[in-house]
């Protein structure tokens, strides 16, 4: 079974970390990741840029709107995610727009650039 492990924390706290603190946390996390990479079990690892870098595409029947900032509703749940390599935010928004058209129900796509990416060791 493949599991996604999603990380939540208070951004105002993590962004108050000094560079040394941030480096230390990343180093300790990397040590844990390495252990699982070595067993071939760990897939992609990503750290996202702060929510201030996010753009959200909201799709309701017949219309989509683009909002600055992260997805902020509490009535909807996280159901999946994509990683896509785009030359620009507009290209990423086009991708999200296509997805929203293909998906008949209303929903939202938060587009957040990555700060860090490690592809991991999972077989395809």
């Amino acid at each position: 079974m493949l599991y996604a492990v999603l990380c939540y924390n208070d951004e105002s706290v993590t962004s108050a970390w000094s560079k040394e603190e941030d480096d230390r946390v990343m180093r300790d996390l990397t040590a844990v990741q390495r252990k699982y990479v070595e067993t071939g079990k760990l897939g992609p690892v990503a750290r996202l840029l702060p929510t201030t870098a996010a753009t959200t595409l909201r799709h309701k029947v017949g219309e989509t709107i683009v909002i600055d900032g992260p997805f902020a509703e509490t009535k909807e749940q996280l159901l999946g995610f994509y990683l896509i390599d785009c030359a620009s935010l507009d290209e990423a928004l086009d991708f999200a727009r296509e997805l929203s058209t293909a998906n008949p129900s209303s929903g939202s796509y938060e587009i957040r650039p990555l700060a860090l990416f490690k592809p991991g060791e999972l077989p395809s």
Partner: peptide, 11 residues
């Protein structure tokens, strides 16, 4: 992060 922010602003 800055480049992402500029792209957002330009829109």
């Amino acid at each position: 992060e800055a480049l992402a922010m500029i792209e957002k602003a330009m829109r």
